[in-house]
Computed example of a mutant assay.
Amino acid sequence: MPTPITQKGFDALKAELDRLRKVERPKNIEAIAEARAHGDLSENAEYDAAKERQGFIAARMAELETKIAEARVVDTTGRTTDTAVFGATVLVIEQESQSKRQYTLVGQDEADMKFNRISVQSPVGRALIGKRVGDFVEVTTPAKVIEYEIVEIKFEEL
């Protein structure tokens, strides 16, 4: 099943995979060879650490290859719509506190609350998708139900 992702997010996945292939894996192979040269492998902590790192690198590379293969890049440049869709930045007002919040709807691998990027699969993301300016949405959290009013929908450079 294709996973939506922005071009920037897709490029970041490819860059990480490239770095693992061209920098991290060769560096790790050298570390293993150097640790082997130290002799007895049964009590060689450097060798054990390098082998463990090798496993991590291989697993991460496989994970990235799968994500890249399943990715469907969604072009959000120059897009305009009055509906909250993938790639949109949505300004909402939380009804109880009247505080404004802004969320950009992105794929799961791009979600980062430091930059107000939320996954379209998150509870807030699912509630916003398909809604329009003036709509109210409810998001159920473990603590309470939060109601937001959608104030603005725009597209920014991701």
Score class of each variant (00 low, 15 high):
Met1Ala: 09
Pro2Tyr: 13
Thr3Gln: 06
Ile5Asp: 01
Thr6Ile: 15
Thr6Asp: 07
Thr6Phe: 08
Lys8Ser: 12
Asp11Ala: 15
Ala12Pro: 02
Leu13Gln: 11
Leu13Gly: 05
Ala15Trp: 07
Ala15Ile: 07
Leu17Ala: 13
Lys22Val: 14
Pro26Phe: 07
Lys27Tyr: 12
Lys27Arg: 14
Asn28Leu: 06
Ile29Pro: 03
Glu30Val: 15
Ala31Lys: 00
Ile32Lys: 01
Ile32Trp: 02
Glu34Phe: 03
Arg36Thr: 06
Ala37Tyr: 07
His38Lys: 15
Gly39Ile: 03
Gly39Gln: 02
Gly39Val: 05
Ser42Gly: 10
Asn44Trp: 00
Glu46Asn: 02
Glu46Pro: 01
Tyr47Ile: 00
Asp48Gln: 04
Ala49Thr: 15
Ala49Phe: 04
Ala50Gly: 04
Lys51Thr: 12
Lys51Arg: 05
Lys51Phe: 08
Lys51Asp: 05
Glu52His: 10
Glu52Ile: 13
Arg53Ser: 07
Arg53Asn: 09
Gln54His: 11
Gln54Cys: 03
Gly55Trp: 07
Phe56Val: 10
Ala58Leu: 11
Ala58Glu: 10
Met61Trp: 11
Ala62Trp: 08
Ala62Asp: 14
Ala62Val: 09
Glu63Gly: 11
Leu64Glu: 00
Glu65Ile: 12
Glu65Leu: 10
Thr66Val: 08
Ile68Gln: 04
Ile68His: 03
Ala69Thr: 11
Ala69Asp: 15
Ala69Gly: 13
Ala69His: 11
Glu70Asp: 15
Glu70Leu: 15
Glu70Trp: 12
Val73Gln: 02
Asp75Met: 15
Asp75Cys: 13
Thr77His: 12
Thr77Gly: 14
Thr77Arg: 12
Gly78Cys: 12
Thr80Cys: 07
Asp82Met: 07
Asp82Leu: 06
Val85Asn: 04
Val85Gly: 00
Val85Ile: 12
Phe86Tyr: 06
Gly87Arg: 00
Thr89Leu: 13
Val90Asp: 01
Leu91Ser: 10
Leu91Ala: 09
Val92His: 08
Ile93Tyr: 01
Glu94Val: 08
Glu94Trp: 13
Gln95Pro: 05
Ser97Asp: 09
Gln98Met: 11
Lys100Arg: 13
Lys100Cys: 14
Arg101Asp: 14
Arg101Val: 14
Gln102Gly: 14
Gln102Val: 15
Tyr103Phe: 08
Thr104Lys: 01
Val106Trp: 03
Asp112Gln: 13
Lys114Val: 11
Lys114Cys: 03
Phe115Leu: 13
Asn116Ile: 06
Asn116Cys: 07
Asn116Lys: 10
Ile118Pro: 01
Val120Thr: 14
Gln121Phe: 11
Ser122Glu: 04
Ser122Gln: 01
Ser122Val: 11
Ser122His: 04
Pro123Gln: 08
Arg126Gly: 04
Ala127Ile: 04
Leu128Cys: 05
Leu128Pro: 00
Ile129Arg: 01
Gly130Asp: 09
Gly130Phe: 06
Gly130Arg: 05
Gly130Ser: 07
Lys131Glu: 03
Arg132Ser: 14
Gly134Gln: 09
Gly134Phe: 08
Val137Phe: 06
Val137Ala: 09
Glu138Trp: 07
Glu138His: 13
Val139Ala: 01
Thr141Asp: 12
Thr141Pro: 04
Pro142Phe: 13
Lys144Gln: 13
Val145Ile: 12
Ile146Ser: 03
Glu149Ser: 11
Ile150Glu: 06
Ile150Thr: 10
Glu152Val: 07
Ile153Pro: 00
Phe155Tyr: 13
